[in-house]
């Protein structure tokens, strides 16, 4: 099996770490080696959160520069920021939600036009998903991470099967939210497939 390097990025409070744990547990249950970095402490307070998750013959949790296979971006600006450690081969899933940093609100800086950046820097392999809206459709606003995990699954980079994730959902969440989380996962998966087809 090839090693798989995944970087999950977002803003403190978006559930980036817990999504990494769900994915890591799912892989670990298959008997495959997995390591993951977590961020705790000061950086959590509305700052940038980066979780590296590495699968296969790996030791440390930090992905070497340019070796990220997949970025799961929970916020638009942070997804773009993660590109500095990526290569042109990296596949990118971007939640289109924007969380405005206070440096922008107080007028020191500007939130960039993401579409313009994608064009200007010729960013390929990027799929934008309105995960917040999809989560709303499932009736469970907390299921944004499952939408993104569904899209990640659809890349076929992960050494797991659909039923493994469903099992993880049942382990991780209270019973009343199983259905909405599984639904969110499936819509995320379908969205990725539809959007990648549209681009081809």
């Amino acid at each position: 099996m090839n090693n798989v390097n995944i970087s999950l990025v977002g803003v403190g409070g978006q559930g980036v770490v817990s999504t990494g744990i769900i994915l890591g547990n799912t892989v670990a249950r298959k008997g495959i080696n997995v390591v993951m970095s977590e961020i705790h402490g000061m950086a959590q307070r509305g700052g940038i959160v980066t979780v590296d998750l590495r699968i296969g013959d790996v030791y440390g949790p930090i992905i070497p520069e340019g070796k990220i296979d997949l970025i799961i971006g929970f916020e638009a600006l942070e997804t773009i920021r993660a590109l500095k450690r990526a290569s042109r081969k990296t596949r990118i899933i971007m939640n289109t939600e924007r969380i405005i940093p206070f440096t922008v609100n107080i007028g020191d800086e500007k939130y960039p036009d993401i579409e313009e950046i994608i064009k200007k820097f010729d960013i390929r392999n990027i799929i934008g998903i309105d995960a917040v809206n999809i989560a709303k459709q499932t009736g469970n606003l907390q299921s944004v991470n499952m939408v993104l995990l569904g899209a990640a699954f659809a890349t076929e980079l992960l050494p797991i099967e659909e039923k493994d994730i469903e099992e993880s959902i049942k382990i991780q969440f209270p019973e009343y939210s199983w259905e909405s989380n599984i639904k969110a996962f499936r819509i995320g998966m379908d969205q990725y497939r539809i959007l990648t087809k549209a681009y081809l």
Binding site: G47, I80, A86, P101, T103
Partner: peptide
């Protein structure tokens, strides 16, 4: 080194009081 993206200038996001 793999083919990388050129540097993109972005606003900072320091941690803040909740």
């Amino acid at each position: 080194k793999d083919d990388k993206y050129s540097e993109i200038k972005l606003p900072s996001r320091p941690p803040v009081l909740c």
